[in-house]
Design a protein around this nucleic acid. Structure first.
Lengths: 88, 88
DNA sequence: CGTGTAAGGAATTCTGACACG
DNA sequence: CGTGTAAGGAATTCTGACACG
């Protein structure tokens, strides 16, 4: 697993990197758009990949999409990624 | 700057990634071997590169080197890196 | 020299909820 | 629906120091 996917970043840092509030980030998790890991103490841990994903989500929300629609889009993308992998 | 060099990791996570204690990591900083950034609140922030460096330091200490010697070695390496860059 | 630990405080994060619209 | 906020608690980190050797 590359640096991009290691869940080592705390929510406060993610806020700085993305410009989002912690409230927004936790809400996107509630809506099943991001999936942070948890430290023993229960602290959410994000990867750089998650940071990129969050900025993408923020973009789509600004474009007027709803969290539910964004989830659908991402599920599709994940599915075709699997298909591609199997095909190759 | 790549993911490797972004200072976004908190000391507790660095402990897990390296197997070192926070006491050791702070001591290596005191001895000028690592240079974490600081958050607004004063929390030390490390990069994946720092994590690698710390493991290297731990290796050398196990080999019997002293922090002072390790620093010398690392300074030399940094210097030749600059030389190489200028040469190329 | 390199590391452990107890001490007290400050910064960070967590959850559940009320609010607006 | 998506986000702000105050609330109280728990986890994390910080510094300076004493200890051992």
């Amino acid at each position: 697993m590359s640096y991009r996917d290691k869940k080592v970043i705390t929510i406060g840092t993610v806020c700085e990197l993305t410009g989002l509030t912690d409230r927004q980030i936790r809400y996107y998790e509630e809506r099943k758009l991001v999936f942070p890991a948890r430290s023993k103490g229960g602290t959410r841990m994000y990867s750089f990949g998650d940071v990129e994903l969050l900025m993408e989500i923020a973009d789509k929300l600004e474009d007027g999409l709803h969290t539910h629609e964004i989830r659908k889009l991402h599920e599709k993308r994940a599915k075709s990624a699997v298909t591609d992998r199997v095909a190759n």
